[in-house]
Design a protein around this nucleic acid. Structure first.
Lengths: 329, 329
DNA sequence: TTGTATGCGTTATCAT
DNA sequence: ATGATAACGCATACAA
């Protein structure tokens, strides 16, 4: 049952049916009612692919909201992750006639600015339930990127940090390393929390005591005090699993200051799979997150929500890939 | 850059370009090379929506593989979950000119039977890594439904049992119930394991001791011994959170045999949101899984994989919805 | 082996 | 307010 058949049944043109479906103004009351009834009677379901193919003539407008904090990093080494994510978004946008506009997450958005915006992508761990509620209230299609908030049911695209971290720990165990420390960023960022949970779960399952330290990777604070404390309280670990590559590199630099050799004395594993980690010396063993895919998938999902019907909110987790390199045995 | 432009650049017809893209036989070596080079040079990306719209003339063939165990339940009360999932699949299939054929998971599939099969949906908790590997080896597009296997990176659609269970436990805590027992099915089924993890996590976080019992919900064994043991060892709990609705109803029946009143003495919470649970007396408090959506989403994802390119494997988790009803305070 | 032409279901432009 | 029709990008039946 397509709109042509509906048009025939309702004795109008397909253009009119299309107008009714898209809540166009220029339809008389009686015609609209007649068409609506026909649509209901024949249980019409629009073909989303045809819709989008046809919609290609129009442009979709999407806001990409990024916190000031991440915006600042975007062109530095530490910002590689979100840069790659942005690449994926842009790529996907180009392939879909989608205009994207980057907006500071902290800026006030009156409904006026959002008038002709079709959807919003909220990037990174700074996104809060408040942000989500704001957009949900005005019925704006929404996807969170690299952030998950259990309390609000909203679409999101994240990496599978739990299983990635589990894999890393299991790998280290298979290399007969049992003293494994986790150094992580703030756990209010879902990504860090997820990896933390994976680490703890495997450690406990094996009957080992998890040992973790928190490090502020945002300001890249001096790590010496942390490592100093770890070494004196806990001794030299067999391995350190870090929340992400940038923390892992910082760990390595700091350990080397203590004349500890990587990977001979301590294996270090990061998370993200950044280029800078790959080119680091020693080259970083890590869990590669498909960053571009994260971005492009998020935009695709957003377009799904904008153009399709009956979309039920889901969390999409991307698998990570273990990359054995020089910083670990 | 679409195939028309490519055709112009390569000085062939769009039909030829299409043939190359679809690995059609009838293209001469030189022409194929020429076209492939052009495609690469201009970084051609096919428009998946146009592809599918055009493909509508053809039918997509999909195998739905179900284990004997689930197949048997399918028309009974306990089989409501997968029946609803199947409804979703069928619905989605109808809307997409997709022919589905239900196949026993245990049956031997020679490559001959799979000759004109475009993709496979593996249903339920009986799916193993072996099944996945078999299909991956022959490059068959694949989606797992209601099952997740961390060791093999394969697309799957599951419910978010972890957060659902967490929510249930937190709800009970908010009602000042602290003696909360979990009765679960076999934990090798990811769904049960996930809910179990959510239960344990919240209990431990609050500083309470998790207390759980395993029950074979498949054969619906007598639950009296289990409850008897629980009552004597642990006493009467304030609440019981069950792995699914069918176990929850069994729990209620058994507790009532012990002259324990629901929900006055014990609150019982299920999982799934089945009709039979809703109509049960007392009506079951539960976490509703969008079963039809699970099915339809799985098929849609499979078609994405069949028709799109560069699809990176993901796990899709559907949010659950807490339904406060009569079996709990 | 290669090209031409039609159709997939919808939107949007231009008439009326 | 409504209708006719050309796109959207691709696959394919049919011709050559």
């Amino acid at each position: 049952m397509n709109i042509r058949e509906i048009a025939k049944k309702a004795d109008v043109s397909i253009a009119t049916v299309s107008r009714v479906l898209n809540n166009s103004e220029n339809v008389s009351f009686v015609t609209r009612e007649k068409v609506l009834e026909t649509l209901k009677r024949y249980e019409f379901k629009m073909d989303p692919w045809a819709k989008r193919l046809a919609s290609k003539r129009t442009v979709t407008k999407v806001f990409i909201m990024i916190s000031k904090r991440i915006m600042k990093q975007l062109n530095s080494k530490t910002g590689e992750f979100y840069s790659k994510v942005m690449e994926g978004i842009k790529n996907s946008a180009k392939a879909n006639r989608t205009m994207i506009e980057t907006v500071e997450m902290e800026s006030n958005l009156d409904e006026d600015k959002l008038k002709n915006v079709n959807g919003v992508l909220l990037i990174g761990g700074d996104t809060t339930a408040e942000h989500v509620r704001f957009f949900k209230k005005i019925g704006m299609p929404l996807v969170l990127v690299d952030q998950y908030i259990p309390t609000v049911k909203v679409d999101c695209v994240v990496s599978n940090g739990y299983d990635g971290a589990s894999y890393a720990v299991k790998y280290l165990l298979s290399q007969h390393i049992r003293k494994i420390v986790h150094i992580h960023g703030f756990l209010n960022h879902f990504g860090f929390k997820d990896r933390y949970s994976g680490y703890v779960a495997v450690m406990e399952q094996i009957g080992l005591l998890p040992k973790s330290y928190e490090y502020n990777d945002d300001i890249m604070e001096d790590m010496k005090p942390l490592v100093d404390k770890m070494l004196s309280v806990y001794g030299v670990p067999g391995a350190i699993f870090a929340s992400n590559d940038s923390i892992a590199m910082k760990v390595i630099e700091t350990l080397e200051d203590f004349h500890i050799k990587i990977p001979e004395d301590v294996s270090v594993i990061g998370f993200d799979g950044t280029e800078v980690g790959k080119n680091f010396i020693p080259s970083l063993t890590t869990l590669k997150v498909p960053m571009r895919e994260m971005g492009s998938l998020a935009l695709k999902r957003l377009l799904d929500i904008v153009y399709d019907q009956d979309v039920y909110p889901v969390r999409i987790s991307l698998f990570t890939e273990f990359m054995k390199r020089g910083s670990s045995i």
